[in-house]
């Protein structure tokens, strides 16, 4: 039978040492930029390019149908909405201060995870719906100048894109993420409560 002091003696006799040195850490600093931050950043850049392209098209092309103008406005709103979300996420991530108390830090992580989940599910549905409506409105002017075959193919593409986004990608994503996020939030809650 050992008492706690004997365990401390065992602990202090250990030779366990890290396999890395300070040089390895410095070398790794540049390589290990936060992947999520990079993903959000590149998403932001891609959307900014899309926004500029849409605005350029809108200003340079003499569209005559009101529906086309409305569709371009919908696209612009979608781009701006996406960019605002990315900026909001980047700001939230940069506010994650690792020197907060564990309880407070975990609370922030929980909020961030919940927000991301909401964005990637419910908000994504409305986002996809708006883009679908935007495409339909945009093609009204286009359809007035082409034959029935082109209209049929274009409509089929729009419907497939919409159904694919909603029925397939989002449903698979939801199913996969819901289980993981619930488990993660439960674990974080359990750990947070340990610091009461």
């Amino acid at each position: 039978m050992k008492n706690f002091d004997s365990l401390v003696d065992i602990w202090q006799a250990q030779n366990s040492k890290p396999d890395i040195d300070y040089k390895t850490v410095i070398t790794q600093v540049n390589k290990s930029k936060n992947k999520l931050i990079l993903k959000l950043f590149w998403g932001l850049i891609a959307m900014a390019i899309a926004l500029v392209t849409i605005l350029f098209l809108w200003l340079k092309t003499p569209f005559s149908y009101t529906t086309t103008h409305i569709s371009l406005l919908v696209f612009v709103i979608c781009c701006v909405y996406y960019m605002v979300l990315q900026i909001k996420n980047l700001t939230l991530l940069s506010k994650n201060n690792l020197t907060e108390t564990p309880k407070f830090y975990i609370e922030k992580i929980q909020k961030f995870k919940q927000l991301r989940y909401k964005e990637n599910t419910r908000n994504y549905f409305f986002y996809t719906l708006a883009i679908g409506v935007g495409f339909i409105l945009y093609f009204i002017e286009f359809f007035s100048q082409v034959n029935a075959w082109v209209i049929a193919v274009s409509l089929m593409f729009i419907i497939l894109w919409f159904l694919g986004s909603y029925m397939y990608i989002l449903k698979i994503y939801r199913k996969r993420e819901e289980k993981a996020i619930n488990q993660m939030l439960q674990d974080l809650e359990r750990i947070k409560n340990q610091f009461d």
Partner: peptide, 19 residues
């Protein structure tokens, strides 16, 4: 200060851990 960073890093390691 370093311990606080280490503790928070360990606690959030959970999300990467394959349970």
């Amino acid at each position: 200060w370093i311990y606080r960073i280490a503790v928070n890093t360990c606690l959030t390691y959970l999300k990467k851990e394959k349970r």
